[in-house]
Design a protein around this nucleic acid. Structure first.
Lengths: 355, 355
DNA sequence: TCATGCCTATAGAACGATCTACATCGTGTC
DNA sequence: GACACGATGTAGATCGTTCTATAGGCATGA
């Protein structure tokens, strides 16, 4: 550790002040676009900053003021839907002074809680939590200290803002589409939702309710069945096997995530069940993988980018103190029809299915 | 802004000190496991911290010491290979005190440079840059101030560590595989590589060289051709169209990324060229999408998780001052054979291909 | 008994910015 | 011409932590 040529001295606000021949707080004021700075002073200070290639020290700013950092909590970097949301956030903040940093926490509630705490400890100005698995109470505590937007969960609260998609409507779109093709045996594969989290209206719960309602609306309540599975290839695979090996396999399966639908596809493929001829399959989120040529999955589009942009906009309003009452934005999903759905065979010929 | 019930007072190191009846620096020492603290003091301070639910204020720590934050620069959150790397980094640091934050910058060199600067400004203890598009000189400047590991680029430097995959070997594996199946007309689709960046040995350059060498090794140098394309569905699609509409379309196409291979697949599908019967297709990185049931793409596995873990380990060594000379880790890729490659038809029957 | 040295704990400055409070300076009004 | 006033700039404290330097306590050895 002795021969450390690192740590070249940084240019500080004091250097800028000296170089411009003004006081330190004056430079600070220019930095913050604060009230009470003459154009001449502005000019001089900005010139000095440019000449010295000065960049403010974010951590130091955080001690008293803002850090100009927005944290986004993601449980799963692999879910392309989250990437869409993140794009929206980034687009919205691109030309602002704020930097977006992502905490990729994994699925564990503990890991997520730890990550959220880390972000708060780093004095981030605002937090965007995408469908957090952390207990609701903990999120409310954090939100009391730092402006927060929750994406996904429908539970409203007065300490944080929310951006949701009308998942129940999305479920209805899918059921309507499948019924109009002639399906009656429509199963739903949705996430289990951790009990511990105490969110009462997670996306999967909304989706399930919407599905049940839509089925009832078509008089198909007796054909409704819900299979719980993780939103992953493997989760979908297991659910697919379970549903397709049952006594009366459904003619259509809708899932709460595209990746789970592909797991179901794998199960079907393995059992010789052809999609869409013998089984219609619908995903959710309309992620990039649904559109891939070999996949061509019918899916529900949630406009993740717009959700992200809305969340960022709302968050900044709060951070800058332009609004101080909670607000909730709701988006409406759309159906993207591809080649994984088709009319069912009128008489399923089980003999065709090889195991 | 008046009725702001926010900003509940945080528990600080001073509170802990008072509660434990010791001085502030003593608490600091316990926090840092510094030398010169008696077990009794340890005990007392830890008890006080637990009782008050104290968490150190990362931004404040950053003012003098470390921030216990590691930054990872990702150009593209959608690339599942990067998710693998990130998993490795996270696993490696899970039980340490360090928090991983991801800067998702997008492809633009400017955006990336801005993100890197943001991380340095936030006093992150170390940086992991995944195939940065930023000019090399800028990375070297940053690395002089903050410990840095570069993943992907083969250019070695004495100010930062590197983790690379032997891309040339990977290219060789693919060519060998295809030649052993009977292919001779094997084309490569690889990224163009921005000239501005001044990295001389990017993954795509290594890959291209490896491909050319392998083709020569089989006496097929005259059949070699390289098509430049972005690593995206669309990039692959355009490259695919270009190659397949040419006078003598190749019987096999290998790409530098799985997602590009799927773009090629789309072009082929659209033109009625069947995979693998009429065209063998190989991806790179063996990401999750290559393994999906409807896809089944032969690909080259880079062990992203291990690369990430190695990078994190090397970085922490540097951050904690256990090593101060640069080091480079190289991994060896493996071929994952699936259903997108097969022997070529001996006599391509062009008539079968509908436009 | 006293100097020596080691170990532990403390005092006080430092990090780089922002905040509050106040000084200064023209300007307009009575 | 004295006074109040708004606009602009400056002093000095402050945020929570770590660093440097030093004081205190205790055993050791001459």
């Amino acid at each position: 550790m002795d021969s450390s040529p690192k740590r070249t001295k940084r240019v500080t606000i004091t250097d800028v002040a000296r170089h411009a021949g003004v006081s330190t707080p004056a430079v600070s004021k220019v930095l913050r676009n604060a009230y009470g700075v003459s154009p001449a002073m502005q000019e001089r200070v900005r010139a000095a900053m440019a000449e010295l290639d000065y960049r403010p020290h974010a951590a130091a700013r955080g001690m008293r003021g803002r850090t100009y950092t927005i944290g986004v909590l993601l449980d799963n970097i692999r879910n392309p839907f989250f990437a869409d949301i993140l794009d929206g956030v980034r687009d919205q903040l691109r030309d602002s002074e704020y930097t977006v940093l992502v905490g990729a926490a994994g699925f564990g509630a503990d890991d997520q809680a730890k990550t959220i705490r880390s972000m708060v400890d780093r004095r981030m100005d605002g937090l965007i939590l995408i469908a957090p698995g952390t207990p609701r109470s903990e999120v409310l505590t954090m939100a009391a200290a730092t402006p927060t937007v929750v994406i996904g969960h429908h539970d409203a609260a007065d300490v944080h803002d929310s951006v949701v998609d009308a998942d129940a409507i999305g479920a209805g779109l899918v059921v309507d589409h499948l019924v109009s093709l002639g399906h009656r045996d429509i199963a739903l594969v949705a996430a289990a939702g951790t009990k511990v989290s105490l969110w009462k209206r997670t996306p999967e719960i909304e989706l399930t309710n919407g599905y049940l309602e839509a089925m009832s609306g078509h008089g198909l309540q007796e054909h409704a069945r819900v299979c719980r599975a993780a939103y992953s290839d493997d989760g979908g695979y297991k659910a697919g096997r379970q549903l397709l090996t049952g006594a009366e396999p459904p003619t259509a399966i809708m899932t709460g995530a595209d990746i789970a639908a592909l797991g179901v596809y794998r199960a079907a493929h393995e059992m010789g069940v052809r999609v869409p001829e013998e089984l219609s399959l619908v995903g959710y989120n309309n992620t990039a993988i649904a559109a891939l040529a070999p996949v061509q999955l019918t899916s529900v589009d949630q406009a993740g980018q717009e959700m992200g942009a809305a969340a960022a906009k709302m968050l900044i309003e709060r951070v800058e103190g332009h609004r101080n009452r909670a607000m909730q934005t709701s988006m409406t999903p759309q159906l993207a029809i591809r080649h994984s759905t088709a009319p069912p065979r009128l008489t399923p010929v089980l003999g065709l299915r090889s195991s």
